[in-house]
Design a protein around this nucleic acid. Sequence first.
DNA 1: AACGGTTCCGGGAACGGTTCCGGCAACGGT
DNA 2: ACCGTTGCCGGAACCGTTCCCGGAACCGTT
Lengths: 338, 338
Amino acid sequence: MQKTATIRDVAAAAGVSPQTVSRVINNRPDVAPQTRRRIWQVIRELGYQPSALARALVSKRTYALGLITADFSDYFFTQVIVGAEAEARRNGYFFILCSTERNPADEPEYLRLLTERQVDGILFARPSTEQDSRHVASLVHQGVPLVTTAYHLPGEQLTVVDVDNVEGGFQATHHLVSCGHRRIGMITGPADWKSVKDRSEGYRRALETAGIPFDPRCVVHGDWSYEGGYRAMQQLLLQSPEITALFAQNDCMAIGAMLALRETGRRIPEDIAVVGFDDIPAAAYCYPPLTTMRQPMQEVGRVATRLLLELIQDPSTERKEVLLKAELVHRSSCCSGA
Amino acid sequence: MQKTATIRDVAAAAGVSPQTVSRVINNRPDVAPQTRRRIWQVIRELGYQPSALARALVSKRTYALGLITADFSDYFFTQVIVGAEAEARRNGYFFILCSTERNPADEPEYLRLLTERQVDGILFARPSTEQDSRHVASLVHQGVPLVTTAYHLPGEQLTVVDVDNVEGGFQATHHLVSCGHRRIGMITGPADWKSVKDRSEGYRRALETAGIPFDPRCVVHGDWSYEGGYRAMQQLLLQSPEITALFAQNDCMAIGAMLALRETGRRIPEDIAVVGFDDIPAAAYCYPPLTTMRQPMQEVGRVATRLLLELIQDPSTERKEVLLKAELVHRSSCCSGA
DNA sequence: AACGGTTCCGGGAACGGTTCCGGCAACGGT
DNA sequence: ACCGTTGCCGGAACCGTTCCCGGAACCGTT
């Protein structure tokens, strides 16, 4: 890589002081228009690019954000990232990618990496499992701006952006109820996820509203995967073969479940109606096309980033929780489907 | 954020010069064991973290890599990223995320961002469309270490890691041929992608090997999406209703195509066999489960990053092209399926 | 006792910017 | 003619680290 020009080279070539060049590239006043033009000219000629590193060193602002993510196979989180990245970029910030995919225990080391690089803030785009989170709490106490999506840190007050999962679970279940179903199975995600608890809560409320007693045999845990949904469905049919409807807490599991259902000869939606959650692209093209709760995933990422930037601007901003709405998308896997 | 300790604070507290502290944190010799211990002690007490920024400024090494990506909805590229991130991390590097998802024209500005931040190298995890690529060529000439996946820059010699798409297309088609099919349709991706050209070339060779004449009416372009596969299939059935087999150049289009086929009453694989490409998770759980060419996507990311790091270590390393093999996965959408 | 070689450590400059502060010329008002 | 502003610019210090070099103390030889 050829040696790059510095601010001093530009200054020398333009016959001014580095100081004045600095004023020009930062659009500060107190430079004669003519001088300004000349300096820009020299900058272009020399192909000068200010060093973001040197700048950050003195200004204490890196315009870097950390992005903690855990599962790139999960459509939800990848879409959150897309939204987040777009919003960051719009504001001159960018993300450092930290994927704890393979090993959640790497997280503390990642956070160390991020603080060493003096990121201005950190966005958590990973689920809240009940792993050790003292290192996160410690960040909060250090005053590092922090926003999370779908991750609630017990005991700490922090800014969270998420989908209203209680409402979403309610709507999904209510839809099945309103189609006349009374025996409604549910495949959840892992028990320690907040979203699972919330969607399950929505399910329960919808049943309660309809005067249907909650039956624990109608509920099986899955792991969000196709495979998991497939197996959970087999389990569910064993436990309560009489169900006429299924609420799967994500689309992958719904699709896996539908395969299991077909294998038992059940027709969808005639014999059993299915509602998913997410609205992944495959949902519209699986067989049969899946009725599901669409989540505004990119929006979650955008809003989260916006709040993070606010927090960076003014660290005294009050922490808050923002919930976005999921919306029911009608397709043919369910009673009143197209 | 509370004021953080600097190397001078540590030095003062330990009664040594900053220089000596520097030697300790960098594990250099020429420090008495006792002094070393004392300094480590102080470092822990003060919670001192060396500033990566200041370090990078003098050492000219940022340990940052740029990651140019275009399509987070594409399973292939997200998996490449996962592999790349893991490999980078293993070597003490990390990625700055640059998604040109919304607007490919942003790319030059992204590259400017990356060079301003003095990244040590850049990984392109985006397809090679025939957009303007002068800015990329300019990077090459500046001597910035560069590795691409699935992206070939015409006229430039650079390190590329990709899947052997010619061979993959050949195998997919050959499999259909060996099941006895003679009229084999193909849904490709966008015409300007290198991988599309290569897979199509493989298709053509397989036909040729079997003595089947190539019929342009058997080929339709898609856009990689479910929707695109669905529409392409309708088009294909119009053009050549007599086909008994389909090679879709990715799984999404294959799944979309299967929906279109079912809508015409065709059974899979009895009436028409289908082979996809990628082996996305949905492939095993769609209906019917999809026979497809599995790509070692994470491996592509890992290898690409490894080569990039090599290039950074020694910029004189010869540029090369690495092709990984795709492998046929048998499922039930095809003749000899399970 | 003088000498060369280690071992351990520190002073000062540098990396590439920004900030603080102050200087100088021109200008308008009295 | 004098004085306070205003516009424009530069000198020096600093951000937090590392690198180059030199120097003191100690060791064993001759």
